[in-house]
Design a protein around this nucleic acid. Sequence first.
DNA 1: TTGCTTGCAAATGATTTGCACTGCT
DNA 2: AGCAGTGCAAATCATTTGCAAGCAA
Lengths: 147, 147
Amino acid sequence: MVATSELERAINDRLADHDLRYTSGRRAIVEGLKRAEGPITLPELLECSPDLAQSSAYRNLSLLEGAGVVRRLVHGGEHAHFELAESLTEHHHHLICESCGQVRDITLDAGLERTLDRSFDELAANEGFTPTHHTVDVYGVCGDCTG
Amino acid sequence: MVATSELERAINDRLADHDLRYTSGRRAIVEGLKRAEGPITLPELLECSPDLAQSSAYRNLSLLEGAGVVRRLVHGGEHAHFELAESLTEHHHHLICESCGQVRDITLDAGLERTLDRSFDELAANEGFTPTHHTVDVYGVCGDCTG
DNA sequence: TTGCTTGCAAATGATTTGCACTGCT
DNA sequence: AGCAGTGCAAATCATTTGCAAGCAA
Protein backbone atom coordinates (compact mmCIF):
# COMPACT_ATOMS: atom_id res chain seq x y z
CA MET A 1 0.00 0.00 0.00
CA VAL A 2 2.26 2.79 -1.19
CA ALA A 3 0.79 5.39 -3.53
CA THR A 4 -2.23 6.26 -1.47
CA SER A 5 -4.12 8.92 -3.35
CA GLU A 6 -5.27 12.17 -1.86
CA LEU A 7 -8.82 10.89 -1.72
CA GLU A 8 -7.83 7.70 0.05
CA ARG A 9 -5.88 9.66 2.60
CA ALA A 10 -8.82 11.97 3.28
CA ILE A 11 -11.13 9.00 3.74
CA ASN A 12 -8.67 7.29 6.01
CA ASP A 13 -8.43 10.42 8.15
CA ARG A 14 -12.17 10.76 8.53
CA LEU A 15 -12.52 7.15 9.50
CA ALA A 16 -9.71 7.48 12.02
CA ASP A 17 -11.46 10.48 13.52
CA HIS A 18 -14.41 8.22 14.17
CA ASP A 19 -12.37 5.28 15.46
CA LEU A 20 -13.14 3.29 12.37
CA ARG A 21 -10.69 1.21 10.37
CA TYR A 22 -10.39 1.41 6.63
CA THR A 23 -10.96 -2.30 6.08
CA SER A 24 -11.11 -4.14 2.79
CA GLY A 25 -14.88 -4.29 2.89
CA ARG A 26 -15.05 -0.53 3.31
CA ARG A 27 -12.50 -0.05 0.57
CA ALA A 28 -14.63 -2.17 -1.72
CA ILE A 29 -17.62 0.05 -1.03
CA VAL A 30 -15.65 3.21 -1.72
CA GLU A 31 -14.27 1.66 -4.91
CA GLY A 32 -17.75 0.75 -6.03
CA LEU A 33 -18.99 4.27 -5.43
CA LYS A 34 -16.00 5.74 -7.24
CA ARG A 35 -16.47 3.52 -10.25
CA ALA A 36 -20.18 4.18 -10.52
CA GLU A 37 -21.44 6.76 -12.98
CA GLY A 38 -23.50 8.40 -10.27
CA PRO A 39 -25.34 7.52 -7.07
CA ILE A 40 -26.14 3.82 -6.83
CA THR A 41 -28.34 1.58 -4.71
CA LEU A 42 -27.18 -1.15 -2.41
CA PRO A 43 -28.21 -3.95 -4.80
CA GLU A 44 -26.20 -2.23 -7.52
CA LEU A 45 -23.24 -1.93 -5.21
CA LEU A 46 -23.42 -5.62 -4.35
CA GLU A 47 -23.55 -6.44 -8.02
CA CYS A 48 -20.18 -4.74 -8.50
CA SER A 49 -18.69 -6.38 -5.44
CA PRO A 50 -20.44 -9.73 -4.98
CA ASP A 51 -18.26 -10.62 -2.01
CA LEU A 52 -19.81 -8.01 0.23
CA ALA A 53 -22.37 -9.29 2.70
CA GLN A 54 -25.57 -7.31 2.46
CA SER A 55 -25.81 -6.51 6.15
CA SER A 56 -22.20 -5.47 6.38
CA ALA A 57 -22.59 -3.27 3.32
CA TYR A 58 -25.59 -1.56 4.88
CA ARG A 59 -23.80 -1.23 8.17
CA ASN A 60 -20.63 0.16 6.63
CA LEU A 61 -22.55 2.54 4.42
CA SER A 62 -24.17 3.94 7.55
CA LEU A 63 -20.87 4.20 9.36
CA LEU A 64 -19.26 5.84 6.34
CA GLU A 65 -22.17 8.23 6.21
CA GLY A 66 -21.65 9.09 9.85
CA ALA A 67 -17.96 9.69 9.20
CA GLY A 68 -18.78 12.07 6.35
CA VAL A 69 -17.42 9.81 3.65
CA VAL A 70 -20.70 8.80 2.07
CA ARG A 71 -23.96 10.57 1.36
CA ARG A 72 -27.29 8.78 1.32
CA LEU A 73 -29.96 10.02 -1.08
CA VAL A 74 -33.56 9.22 -0.29
CA HIS A 75 -36.04 9.71 -3.07
CA GLY A 76 -39.33 7.99 -3.70
CA GLY A 77 -37.94 4.77 -5.20
CA GLU A 78 -37.61 1.49 -3.41
CA HIS A 79 -33.93 1.81 -2.57
CA ALA A 80 -31.84 4.64 -1.23
CA HIS A 81 -28.92 5.77 -3.40
CA PHE A 82 -25.38 6.28 -2.15
CA GLU A 83 -22.51 8.41 -3.39
CA LEU A 84 -19.23 9.78 -2.04
CA ALA A 85 -19.76 12.84 0.15
CA GLU A 86 -19.64 16.20 -1.60
CA SER A 87 -16.74 17.30 0.58
CA LEU A 88 -14.70 14.56 -1.10
CA THR A 89 -15.91 15.33 -4.61
CA GLU A 90 -17.72 18.56 -5.49
CA HIS A 91 -21.06 20.21 -4.94
CA HIS A 92 -23.62 18.98 -7.44
CA HIS A 93 -27.27 18.10 -7.84
CA HIS A 94 -29.35 15.30 -9.29
CA LEU A 95 -31.46 14.43 -12.25
CA ILE A 96 -33.87 11.63 -11.38
CA CYS A 97 -35.76 9.43 -13.82
CA GLU A 98 -39.29 8.93 -12.54
CA SER A 99 -39.64 5.81 -14.62
CA CYS A 100 -36.57 3.69 -13.88
CA GLY A 101 -35.26 5.46 -10.80
CA GLN A 102 -31.85 6.16 -12.29
CA VAL A 103 -30.03 9.13 -10.76
CA ARG A 104 -27.51 11.25 -12.64
CA ASP A 105 -25.31 14.12 -11.45
CA ILE A 106 -25.69 17.67 -12.70
CA THR A 107 -23.81 20.84 -11.85
CA LEU A 108 -25.26 24.32 -11.77
CA ASP A 109 -23.50 27.42 -12.97
CA ALA A 110 -21.35 28.79 -10.14
CA GLY A 111 -23.07 32.16 -10.27
CA LEU A 112 -26.49 30.64 -10.00
CA GLU A 113 -25.33 28.47 -7.14
CA ARG A 114 -24.11 31.56 -5.32
CA THR A 115 -27.41 33.29 -5.90
CA LEU A 116 -29.25 30.30 -4.52
CA ASP A 117 -27.08 30.16 -1.45
CA ARG A 118 -27.74 33.78 -0.65
CA SER A 119 -31.43 33.27 -1.20
CA PHE A 120 -31.54 30.21 1.02
CA ASP A 121 -29.67 31.86 3.84
CA GLU A 122 -32.15 34.68 3.84
CA LEU A 123 -35.22 32.44 3.68
CA ALA A 124 -33.93 30.16 6.40
CA ALA A 125 -33.10 33.08 8.66
CA ASN A 126 -36.64 34.38 8.26
CA GLU A 127 -37.95 31.09 9.55
CA GLY A 128 -35.46 30.87 12.38
CA PHE A 129 -33.56 28.06 10.70
CA THR A 130 -29.82 27.63 10.59
CA PRO A 131 -29.21 26.21 7.11
CA THR A 132 -26.61 23.47 6.68
CA HIS A 133 -26.95 22.45 3.07
CA HIS A 134 -29.40 22.19 0.22
CA THR A 135 -30.44 19.81 -2.49
CA VAL A 136 -31.84 20.51 -5.92
CA ASP A 137 -33.46 17.60 -7.67
CA VAL A 138 -34.78 17.69 -11.21
CA TYR A 139 -37.28 14.95 -11.95
CA GLY A 140 -38.09 13.77 -15.40
CA VAL A 141 -37.93 10.82 -17.74
CA CYS A 142 -34.59 9.65 -19.07
CA GLY A 143 -33.80 8.91 -22.69
CA ASP A 144 -33.91 5.16 -22.20
CA CYS A 145 -37.41 5.33 -20.73
CA THR A 146 -38.72 7.85 -23.23
CA GLY A 147 -37.98 5.30 -25.91
CA MET B 1 -73.37 20.64 0.95
CA VAL B 2 -73.96 24.00 -0.69
CA ALA B 3 -71.08 26.49 -0.86
CA THR B 4 -68.47 24.21 -2.32
CA SER B 5 -65.29 26.23 -2.66
CA GLU B 6 -63.20 26.43 -5.77
CA LEU B 7 -60.64 24.12 -4.24
CA GLU B 8 -63.23 21.53 -3.30
CA ARG B 9 -64.63 21.61 -6.79
CA ALA B 10 -61.19 21.11 -8.31
CA ILE B 11 -60.52 18.17 -6.03
CA ASN B 12 -63.90 16.68 -6.77
CA ASP B 13 -63.20 16.93 -10.50
CA ARG B 14 -59.85 15.22 -10.27
CA LEU B 15 -61.30 12.42 -8.23
CA ALA B 16 -64.13 12.00 -10.68
CA ASP B 17 -61.60 11.81 -13.51
CA HIS B 18 -60.13 8.83 -11.73
CA ASP B 19 -63.47 7.21 -10.86
CA LEU B 20 -63.01 8.00 -7.21
CA ARG B 21 -65.66 9.35 -4.86
CA TYR B 22 -65.05 12.26 -2.58
CA THR B 23 -66.01 10.43 0.59
CA SER B 24 -66.00 11.74 4.12
CA GLY B 25 -62.76 9.97 4.90
CA ARG B 26 -61.08 11.61 1.93
CA ARG B 27 -62.56 14.95 2.88
CA ALA B 28 -61.14 14.54 6.34
CA ILE B 29 -57.69 13.95 4.89
CA VAL B 30 -57.92 17.00 2.65
CA GLU B 31 -59.16 19.07 5.60
CA GLY B 32 -56.25 17.89 7.69
CA LEU B 33 -53.77 18.82 5.00
CA LYS B 34 -55.43 22.20 4.53
CA ARG B 35 -55.34 23.00 8.22
CA ALA B 36 -51.74 21.95 8.66
CA GLU B 37 -49.03 24.59 8.67
CA GLY B 38 -47.08 22.62 6.09
CA PRO B 39 -46.47 19.05 4.99
CA ILE B 40 -47.40 16.53 7.68
CA THR B 41 -46.84 12.85 8.36
CA LEU B 42 -49.50 10.20 8.58
CA PRO B 43 -49.32 9.99 12.39
CA GLU B 44 -49.80 13.75 12.53
CA LEU B 45 -52.74 13.50 10.20
CA LEU B 46 -54.36 10.81 12.34
CA GLU B 47 -53.85 12.97 15.39
CA CYS B 48 -55.99 15.68 13.80
CA SER B 49 -58.63 13.22 12.67
CA PRO B 50 -58.61 10.32 15.14
CA ASP B 51 -61.51 8.62 13.40
CA LEU B 52 -59.45 7.75 10.35
CA ALA B 53 -58.25 4.18 10.15
CA GLN B 54 -54.54 4.05 9.52
CA SER B 55 -54.74 1.70 6.57
CA SER B 56 -57.52 3.66 4.93
CA ALA B 57 -55.63 6.88 5.43
CA TYR B 58 -52.56 5.39 3.76
CA ARG B 59 -54.66 3.95 0.98
CA ASN B 60 -56.54 7.17 0.35
CA LEU B 61 -53.40 9.23 0.48
CA SER B 62 -52.00 7.02 -2.29
CA LEU B 63 -55.17 7.28 -4.32
CA LEU B 64 -55.27 11.04 -3.84
CA GLU B 65 -51.66 11.17 -4.90
CA GLY B 66 -52.50 9.24 -8.05
CA ALA B 67 -55.34 11.64 -8.77
CA GLY B 68 -53.02 14.62 -8.47
CA VAL B 69 -54.62 15.94 -5.31
CA VAL B 70 -51.86 15.10 -2.87
CA ARG B 71 -48.09 15.18 -3.03
CA ARG B 72 -45.90 12.81 -1.05
CA LEU B 73 -42.53 14.06 0.18
CA VAL B 74 -39.86 11.52 0.97
CA HIS B 75 -36.90 12.73 2.96
CA GLY B 76 -34.62 10.87 5.30
CA GLY B 77 -36.94 10.79 8.31
CA GLU B 78 -39.00 7.86 9.46
CA HIS B 79 -42.27 9.01 7.91
CA ALA B 80 -43.16 10.47 4.54
CA HIS B 81 -44.80 13.90 4.57
CA PHE B 82 -47.96 14.79 2.67
CA GLU B 83 -49.32 18.08 1.35
CA LEU B 84 -51.88 19.24 -1.18
CA ALA B 85 -50.54 19.07 -4.74
CA GLU B 86 -48.87 22.21 -6.04
CA SER B 87 -51.39 22.48 -8.85
CA LEU B 88 -54.01 23.10 -6.17
CA THR B 89 -51.90 25.52 -4.19
CA GLU B 90 -48.75 27.14 -5.57
CA HIS B 91 -45.21 26.20 -6.46
CA HIS B 92 -42.99 26.23 -3.40
CA HIS B 93 -40.06 24.49 -1.76
CA HIS B 94 -39.14 23.12 1.63
CA LEU B 95 -37.08 23.89 4.65
CA ILE B 96 -36.34 20.71 6.60
CA CYS B 97 -35.12 20.47 10.17
CA GLU B 98 -32.50 17.75 10.42
CA SER B 99 -33.10 17.43 14.11
CA CYS B 100 -36.87 17.06 14.54
CA GLY B 101 -37.89 16.36 10.95
CA GLN B 102 -40.27 19.28 10.73
CA VAL B 103 -40.92 20.56 7.21
CA ARG B 104 -41.85 24.14 6.40
CA ASP B 105 -42.79 25.78 3.10
CA ILE B 106 -40.67 28.45 1.43
CA THR B 107 -41.13 30.36 -1.81
CA LEU B 108 -38.37 31.56 -4.06
CA ASP B 109 -38.35 34.85 -5.86
CA ALA B 110 -40.21 34.49 -9.17
CA GLY B 111 -37.23 35.66 -11.17
CA LEU B 112 -34.92 33.18 -9.56
CA GLU B 113 -37.46 30.44 -10.10
CA ARG B 114 -37.55 31.31 -13.80
CA THR B 115 -33.79 31.27 -14.00
CA LEU B 116 -33.74 27.85 -12.38
CA ASP B 117 -36.34 26.50 -14.76
CA ARG B 118 -34.36 27.61 -17.76
CA SER B 119 -31.21 26.16 -16.29
CA PHE B 120 -32.87 22.84 -15.55
CA ASP B 121 -34.38 22.52 -19.00
CA GLU B 122 -30.97 22.97 -20.51
CA LEU B 123 -29.21 20.56 -18.19
CA ALA B 124 -31.88 17.92 -18.59
CA ALA B 125 -31.81 18.22 -22.36
CA ASN B 126 -28.05 17.67 -22.32
CA GLU B 127 -28.59 14.40 -20.52
CA GLY B 128 -31.44 13.31 -22.72
CA PHE B 129 -33.99 13.83 -19.96
CA THR B 130 -37.45 15.28 -20.33
CA PRO B 131 -37.89 17.28 -17.13
CA THR B 132 -41.27 17.25 -15.39
CA HIS B 133 -40.67 19.15 -12.19
CA HIS B 134 -38.05 20.01 -9.63
CA THR B 135 -37.62 20.23 -5.90
CA VAL B 136 -35.40 22.46 -3.84
CA ASP B 137 -34.87 21.43 -0.25
CA VAL B 138 -32.96 23.49 2.27
CA TYR B 139 -31.78 21.47 5.25
CA GLY B 140 -30.88 22.97 8.57
CA VAL B 141 -31.82 23.13 12.21
CA CYS B 142 -35.00 24.91 13.25
CA GLY B 143 -35.29 27.46 16.03
CA ASP B 144 -36.90 25.01 18.43
CA CYS B 145 -34.05 22.55 18.05
CA THR B 146 -31.31 25.17 18.14
CA GLY B 147 -32.53 26.06 21.61
C1' DT C 1 -6.50 -9.34 24.86
C1' DT C 2 -9.09 -5.53 23.93
C1' DG C 3 -12.10 -3.94 20.76
C1' DC C 4 -13.35 -3.03 15.97
C1' DT C 5 -15.36 -6.13 12.13
C1' DT C 6 -17.96 -9.44 9.93
C1' DG C 7 -21.78 -12.57 8.35
C1' DC C 8 -25.71 -14.94 9.50
C1' DA C 9 -30.14 -14.98 11.08
C1' DA C 10 -33.70 -12.62 13.25
C1' DA C 11 -36.05 -8.24 14.27
C1' DT C 12 -37.98 -3.73 12.99
C1' DG C 13 -41.26 -0.69 11.29
C1' DA C 14 -43.41 2.16 7.78
C1' DT C 15 -46.38 1.15 4.26
C1' DT C 16 -49.21 -2.07 1.53
C1' DT C 17 -52.55 -5.56 0.75
C1' DG C 18 -56.31 -9.50 1.28
C1' DC C 19 -60.70 -10.00 2.55
C1' DA C 20 -65.21 -9.65 4.30
C1' DC C 21 -68.41 -6.07 5.23
C1' DT C 22 -70.75 -1.57 4.69
C1' DG C 23 -72.87 1.79 1.98
C1' DC C 24 -73.61 4.60 -2.22
C1' DT C 25 -76.14 4.94 -6.55
C1' DA D 1 -78.07 -5.56 -7.39
C1' DG D 2 -73.46 -4.03 -8.13
C1' DC D 3 -69.46 -1.96 -7.32
C1' DA D 4 -66.56 1.55 -4.63
C1' DG D 5 -64.93 2.31 0.11
C1' DT D 6 -63.70 0.83 4.80
C1' DG D 7 -61.30 -1.43 8.75
C1' DC D 8 -58.95 -5.15 10.58
C1' DA D 9 -55.40 -8.22 10.50
C1' DA D 10 -51.72 -10.14 8.03
C1' DA D 11 -48.03 -9.56 4.62
C1' DT D 12 -44.06 -6.87 2.48
C1' DC D 13 -39.64 -5.53 2.15
C1' DA D 14 -35.74 -2.33 2.68
C1' DT D 15 -32.98 -1.60 6.32
C1' DT D 16 -31.29 -2.45 11.07
C1' DT D 17 -29.65 -5.16 14.82
C1' DG D 18 -28.04 -9.23 18.09
C1' DC D 19 -24.73 -12.28 18.49
C1' DA D 20 -20.79 -15.38 18.12
C1' DA D 21 -16.63 -15.74 15.70
C1' DG D 22 -12.48 -13.40 13.19
C1' DC D 23 -8.83 -10.27 13.03
C1' DA D 24 -5.79 -6.25 13.78
C1' DA D 25 -3.02 -3.34 17.05
